[in-house]
């Protein structure tokens, strides 16, 4: 449905986006992950036609939309990271203004406004000025404004940054409903891995302007399939314990945690008996032992060397 081909944006000599290829099939929910400065927002700006690419293409149903972006604008709903609303106007006035300039028909607009307000849970407070709203409520109106023209594709750029859990849940539920019940195609960027895990069928991981990995959750997790992560809770931790564990066969990495150590070892290797022996020799005891299933966060860390919030 929507795809980018070798999409590139260069500012002076710096490539903010470096030849990325992503696609969205109709009805899919796709995550775009990357640390700050990875190029996610630049990519979204190019896809949504706000920014002209230095090279490459954006195609909708196989047709290039770089020269004439009017059609892509018609089918896209974009929820920017910023609260793109007039603070001095009420939620109702904001939606009415954007609905009118989206050219939603007069007889449809009022109903549509009430529908999206219902969807984001602000129907009762629509007459209040946006500046009196909490951060979460503003973000919900921000989403509502992008839904007025019933877009086929919704792009959300970190829509849950800095908001209360209630609003966050509301937003996630809204996005899920839009995707599952209304068939809206979703491109979702977030700093919160669990949101992407919860909402998206596929994920792109970006770093330094490039796509470093992509695929379904299981496909991405398989990147870490050659390693086990083991959390060991100890009665006492010492440098000697860490050094001796590091020296054990199959152990690739040891990190100290608040109550013990974290070991990354070759997948399937049985290090438990040797580990117990080492720890007892250092006059400590294992109080808890757990082999962790790798998460997308681990995959992200493995690929970029950073956590998502770096």
């Amino acid at each position: 449905m929507l795809e980018t081909v070798n999409l590139t944006k260069t500012y002076k000599d710096k490539k903010a986006v470096d030849g990325i290829d992503i696609y969205l099939d109709k009805g899919e929910s796709v995550g775009l992950l990357g640390p700050n400065g990875a190029g996610k927002s630049t990519t979204i700006s190019m896809i949504s036609s706000l920014l002209k690419p230095t090279s490459g293409d954006v195609r909708l149903n196989g047709e290039s939309k770089i020269k004439d972006p009017s059609e892509i604008r018609r089918v896209l709903g974009v929820v920017p990271q910023e609260i793109a609303l007039y603070e001095e106007l009420s939620a109702y006035e904001n939606l009415k203004f954007f609905g009118k300039i989206y050219k939603v028909k007069k007889d449809v607009l009022e109903n549509r406004m009430q529908e999206v307000l219902e969807m984001v849970g602000l129907k009762e407070r629509q007459k209040e000025l946006v500046k009196t709203f909490s951060g979460g409520m503003k973000r919900r109106v921000n989403i509502a404004a992008a839904l007025l023209h019933q877009p086929e594709i919704l792009i959300l750029d970190e829509p849950t940054v800095g908001i209360d859990p209630q609003s966050r849940n509301h937003i996630l539920e809204t996005v899920r409903k839009l995707n599952e019940e209304h068939g809206t195609t979703i491109l979702y960027t977030s700093h919160y891995m669990e949101e992407v895990e919860q909402l998206c069928n596929r994920v792109y991981i970006m770093d330094h302007g490039k796509i470093v990995a992509s695929g379904s959750k299981n496909e991405l997790l398989s990147i870490l399939s050659s390693e086990d992560t083991i959390q060991v809770q100890l009665s006492k931790t010492s440098d000697a314990i860490i050094e001796k564990v590091k020296g054990m066969e199959h152990v690739r990495r040891v990190d100290e945690t608040s109550d013990g150590i974290r070991i990354i070892s070759k997948k399937g290797s049985n290090i438990l008996s040797d580990l117990v022996h080492v720890i007892e020799n250092e006059n400590s005891q294992i109080s808890h032992f757990q082999v962790e299933i790798p998460s997308l966060e681990d995959v992200f860390l493995h690929l970029t060397g950073k956590t998502l919030r770096d």
């Binding site: 036609s49 706000l50 604008r73 896209l76 920017p80 793109a84 603070e87 989206y102 050219k103 992008a146």
Partner: peptide
């Protein structure tokens, strides 16, 4: 506040 961008996206 990127309201102008949102206006551009409406094809106005």
């Amino acid at each position: 506040e990127r309201v102008f961008n949102r206006i551009l996206l409406t094809n106005s």
